[in-house]
Each structure stands twice: as structure tokens, then as C-alpha cells.
Design a protein around this nucleic acid. Structure first.
Length: 256
DNA sequence: ATGTCCCTTCACAAGGGA
């Protein structure tokens, strides 16, 4: 079973690129972030034409997440619900069961800059995600993929000195991620590649991809059951190339 | 490195977000 997570930075702007990639790769499950479209405008045919079923949680202009799968996603939930419904006004979380595995697509808030309101919102959102995971039944295998907007440690940063303390790398964000993982989740890429220096995002603004000035902020976090069965984790750098590319590359895992 | 890309609207230029 192969799962891929990809922040598209607009599914409508990425339609042709995504179709070509999907035809060539055909993962069993595709987790999407930043679809940037209301549900009524979602391009369903892009998926159904290729045999995928897709469940979506979108909004106008920003955010938006989805899960596409070759088998039927069941028990779909959107947002945190329960006591954290106040943090559900932005479309950043969707979950479904696929082939017995609880699969989650997350788009963690970017946080803009340390000390801003958006940064505080990011930390609050991550705390809510931890509470949401606490409600998950440990009997069901769990994998959470998405754009976490956090580089877990300095191995995940092209220039740790330049990024020290900045948003995406600051200690409170990293601590929030560790708090989440303390539930019993493994960063699949890092487990597979202890010394790996692969990145998943390169800023458009600094022409960063050309210089490979990237950060690894897109992750699969898996529970012990799934983590033990992972055989590969790769970042598809090729998909970041070209003028019509998202600023994120797809991240892929294979589960035996 | 204030350099790009995508979205939206009191829309064809400018602001917000990343």
C-alpha cells in the first residue's frame, strides 16, 4: 500500500500537473493540502477519471484538504469537532478509513512569523490536534500525513543558522510537534533516513529550489503498527520542477 | 535576498497569504 501527501498550492492551478503525475504514479492513497477551493468547485473528475474516490473539506481561497483513494474511504470526519470546534473555521483536517487504516490529511497553520497572532493560532491548533489524536482508538492503525509547517530539527533545514528561531523552525513549534509524537507517532522519513537531507518545500520568493535551499516540513507520522511495516519513504523532488509546480514536493511511503 | 505564485475583489491593480 503506497500513500502520498502533497501540498498542491491550489488544485485548480495544478490540474494538469496533478493529472499527469497521478497517471504515472497511481498511489493507493493521496492526501492533499491547500486545495484552495470550495467544495462546490472541486474538480472531482480529475480523480474519478482515474478510478479514485475522493473526500474533501474545502473553503474559499485558502486551506482545503482532501483524501483520494483507489478503494472507498469510509467513516469520513472533518475538523476537530467536540471541544475544539472553535478551531474548525479553517479547513485543515480530514480523516477517513481506507483498507482498515485510519488516514488523516492535515494542513497545519503556517504561523507567518514568531510572535504574531497567526503564530499563536498555529500553536493552539497543534494543541487541539494533540487532543484530537488522544481520542483516537489505539486499536486502529493510524497514519497522519500533510504539510506540518514545522522542520523537526536542524537536519531538516538547509541553513540552520539562518533559520534559527524563525517560524517553521522555532523551539515552541518543534516542542508542539514532539508533544504530538509523544502519543506514539514516528516521523517515517527520519526513521528510514537518519542522516537524510531531503527537503519537501522550497520558497518561491527566494528562488530557493534552484539553490536547493529547502526545508522538510511535509511529513508522514505513523503509529507503531504502521511504522513497523513501512518499507520506503521518498520525496519526489522531480515534481517540484518546472514553472507550473507547487512549492511543495510529494512525500511517499510504502507499507508492507 | 522586498526575488514568486496564487487567491480575491468596491476587479484589469493591489492586497493578503504563504
Amino acid at each position: 500500500m503506497r500513500l502520498v501527501t502533497w501540498n498542491l498550492n491550489s488544485i485548480r492551478a495544478r490540474t494538469d500537473k496533478l493529472r499527469g503525475w497521478l497517471e504515472a504514479e497511481r498511489p493507493d492513497v493521496l492526501l492533499l493540502q491547500e486545495t484552495k477551493v470550495e467544495d462546490a468547485g472541486f474538480p472531482h473528475a480529475l480523480f474519478t477519471d482515474l478510478g479514485y474516490q475522493v473526500v474533501i473539506h474545502g473553503q474559499k481561497s485558502y486551506n482545503g484538504v482532501a483524501i483520494a483513494a483507489l478503494t472507498t474511504p469510509t467513516d469520513v470526519t472533518i475538523g476537530f469537532g467536540a471541544s475544539d470546534a472553535a478551531l474548525d473555521e479553517q479547513a485543515r483536517l480530514i480523516a477517513a478509513t481506507v483498507d482498515g487504516v485510519r488516514v488523516v490529511s492535515v494542513y497545519v497553520p503556517n504561523g507567518q512569523a514568531v510572535g504574531t497572532d497567526k503564530y499563536e493560532y498555529k500553536l493552539a491548533w497543534l494543541a487541539a490536534l494533540r487532543r484530537w489524536i488522544d481520542r483516537h482508538d489505539r486499536a486502529q492503525p493510524l497514519v497522519i500525513g500533510g504539510d506540518w509547517n514545522i522542520a523537526p530539527d536542524d537536519r531538516d533545514v538547509h541553513d540552520p543558522k539562518r533559520w534559527a528561531g524563525k517560524v517553521l523552525c522555532s523551539e515552541p513549534e518543534r516542542a508542539a510537534l514532539r508533544e504530538l509524537m509523544a502519543w506514539g507517532l514516528t516521523d517515517v522519513y527520519r526513521a528510514q533516513h537518519p542522516d537524510g537531507r531531503a527537503y519537501s518545500w522550497w520558497d518561491y520568493r527566494t528562488i530557493a529550489f534552484f539553490k536547493d535551499q529547502g526545508l522538510r516540513i511535509d511529513h508522514f507520522l505513523a503509529d507503531a503498527t504502521i511504522a513497523a511495516r513501512v518499507t520506503t519513504c521518498a520525496i519526489d523532488r522531480e515534481a517540484r520542477k518546472g514553472r507550473d509546480a507547487s512549492d511543495h514536493a510529494p512525500v511517499s511511503i510504502t507499507i508492507a
